[in-house]
Design a protein around this nucleic acid. Structure first.
Lengths: 233, 233
DNA sequence: TTACTTTTGTGCTATAAAACATAGTTATAA
DNA sequence: TTATAACTATGTTTTATAGCACAAAAGTAA
């Protein structure tokens, strides 16, 4: 299944948005300390309750950040795509991880010790501002999400998840299939509902000719309609 | 009602956590640019959709940050107490406000132009780190909240709100009354439920001798039990 | 292959919470 | 002070969604 293991990455290209910010000497430090780890499908990258140590950057693959809820129910908090950074919030807050991260498919993740990052950050304001900006954006998303997940009905929440997946991971070559395959359960955990309701609502969308299904593949037939349901219904 | 208007504040004392971080010259700039505005009960401080311009610090009073939901329903995203900073997220993210802020009771708010803050922040790493830390903490709270609001049942959500109010605003001199008075509607908006359900659930708590009610005053009788309901129920 | 686990799909039931209706109560303003 | 509006309280009805049971299908391993 996982043939892309041990692929070689050029950090200066992969981590380009941080790279642009660093001086030559800082780049040297970064290159020296960065380590790439490879994860298989469903492998945990870090666990809820662990002490955070590294800044992580997803180079290849797909990662979900999730959280145990009350009745053992799981909630997907956000999804990571290349090239996004994660794992730094808890360290900055001085907390243990509140969430867990796991690979959705074979993934390559670049690790840089947070100690190194913080040291650089104290001498490089642009890097500090990079994190301020990203944390601010993520906090806004979290606020929006809270309202969506609590106030929208099932159809709206599922449609919103599909739109999110579409916008985040794009389409395959056929120009219709969402370029990520989730289990119905994961889709439910992303949309705050039970798996049976995710399944039921997906079939409704099929009947209404908004999507078609082929196993885990989801084809978007009527994107406009889907976005409308996401907004209003 | 509002006798505390036009109270005089010493910025070096009120904004102490930022003050400690600044150099003498930076303090001078801050003192020069800071303006204190006074708000009456229920007055808006900023509105959803507006362009953010200032860092705000609540010097006195109580403020709620909220968001319009789908069916005109309102969701309280967070509550501010003295001395907490707010209003900066949207500016850092380069967005218009996603939320609105309004005074809960007569409040004094210190405004500092974000342009000034950002300028200082680019020359003072400790200040940058101050925002990184606070954004990180708030993002963690937002993630926790999403799970609580979506997965806990009504009793658990209401109890959690009461615990939050207790921990945030403390008790009055009698050692039992929560030191903030919200309408049942606000309490509902904070706990993601309708006003009638907030009222009903409050009466249940009274019957179970967890709290007593006297209009908007809420007395905590059995804090341990309340925390238990917040966690498990 | 065969056996076995996991995932998906559907129908039915139970229930938590919203929606509605109405009345009493407390603020607020004229 | 009275009139009016806003808030609080409670009972009833409706509905969205969870929970459960079971069957079919698809992966996975021996």
């Amino acid at each position: 299944m996982a043939k892309i293991q041990r692929e070689v990455f050029d950090i200066s290209v992969s981590l380009k948005d941080i790279w642009e910010i660093l001086s030559d000497s800082e780049r040297e430090i970064f290159r020296e300390k960065a380590v790439i780890h490879y994860f298989k499908r469903n492998q945990m990258i870090y666990c809820e309750g662990e002490r955070p140590t590294d800044l992580m950057c997803l180079l290849k693959g797909k990662v979900k950040i999730s959280k145990e809820g009350v009745g053992g129910r799981n909630q997907i908090i956000r999804m990571i795509r290349p090239v996004q950074y994660f794992g730094y919030r808890a360290y900055f807050a001085g907390e243990d991880y509140l969430t867990g991260a796991s690979a959705f498919e074979s993934s390559a993740v670049c690790f840089v010790p947070m100690k190194v990052v913080v040291a650089l950050l104290h001498q490089n304001n642009a890097l500090a501002y990079f994190f301020i900006r990203h944390l601010s954006i993520d906090l806004g998303i979290a606020d929006e999400r809270t309202v969506s997940l609590t106030q929208k009905h099932i159809r709206g929440r599922l449609a919103e998840s599909l739109v999110f997946l579409l916008d985040s991971y794009g389409l395959e070559e056929d120009g219709a299939t969402i370029n990520i395959y989730l289990s119905r359960e994961d889709l439910a955990n992303l949309s705050n509902m039970t798996a049976s309701n995710a399944i039921r609502t997906l079939s409704n969308f099929v009947m209404e000719r908004i999507i078609t299904l082929d196993g885990k593949k989801i084809k978007i037939i009527d994107e406009e309609r889907l976005r409308k349901v996401s907004k209003l219904g």
